[in-house]
Design a protein around this nucleic acid. Structure first.
Lengths: 149, 149
DNA sequence: CTGCAAGTTGAAGTCCACTTCAACTCAAGG
DNA sequence: CCTTGAGTTGAAGTGGACTTCAACTTGCAG
């Protein structure tokens, strides 16, 4: 069994184009050794990083944020369980928030709205306790206090 | 109480910049009446559409896909509960899939990986039953069958 | 040893989701 | 009326995430 992968192999296994992998490397998301002839060789652990990047990206997290998260992993050695756990703790809140938002969108669509409750004022989507604050520059309450619907 | 909103008012209430609202209109995501002097006036229902757009967008759904979904709502009348419910049904699967992906990312981070199980081969993230197929051009299994980790 | 698929680089191009700009008009209070 | 803040347009600019291209080099099967 090989212990390192060419860019083509990593691309095939991760489902990410070689050009994207080179781009990720420029951004510092993944790393590669070089052969004598200057070709990239990836340690098997990079597969895990690529998977992490793609999944995080698919749910709307920017590459810059992902990079910041991955930077918490040690560069000098293969990350241990404890390293990944630390990253996990840091991301727990934001993942929980995204999951909450998604579940709400889904449930409101076929629950609140689907059930005939058309006054969004009373729906969870607009409820003050569910403020969208924090995420992004434009995020604020959809309906200010005291606004009728 | 006013029954229509200016672009500035809709912007303030939705947390979306006026320039973005005009852009959304060009893409057919929202609609506006015009005053005699050619200014936009939004029906209150547009607030709901803007909220829908922003939430869907925040979880990684493109404006084009959102437009397609909103197109299933009637243009000629204010959408009823049944209209929104239909949209809901159409999106149920994709929302469920996103939620599953997110939950997995979170749980794997502080469960599987956090527990010391470093062989991702055995982790849900890489498990064949969880193929990433369908979503996007590059999506395929992270590790092909028979690949050791 | 050779042929050719696969790899390398930097620069330029593309698509999306907006924002900014310039030049102009509208709406409403004093 | 007149001023001023809010709104209008089309065109151009921005930033993120890549892809494509051209010109060149490597690595391995035959």
């Amino acid at each position: 069994m090989q212990e390192s992968l060419t860019i083509g192999q990593l691309a095939a296994r991760s489902g990410v184009a070689p050009s994207a992998l080179r781009y990720y490397e420029r951004l510092g998301l993944i790393r590669a050794e070089r052969t004598g002839g200057n070709q990239r060789r990836y340690a098997r652990g990079e597969l895990r990083r690529v998977a992490f990047v793609r999944i995080a990206q698919q749910v709307g997290i920017s590459l810059e944020e992902i990079r910041a998260a991955l930077d918490s992993l040690p560069a000098s050695r293969t990350p241990t369980a404890a390293d990944w756990a630390k990253l996990s703790t840091a991301w727990r809140a934001r993942l929980d928030e995204k999951i909450r938002l998604l579940s709400k969108l889904r449930d409101d669509l076929d629950g609140c709205i689907g059930c005939g409750c058309l006054s969004l004022r009373r729906c969870t989507l607009y409820n003050p306790e569910d403020k969208l604050s924090g995420e992004g520059p434009g995020a604020r309450l959809m309906l200010p206090e005291g606004t009728p619907d």
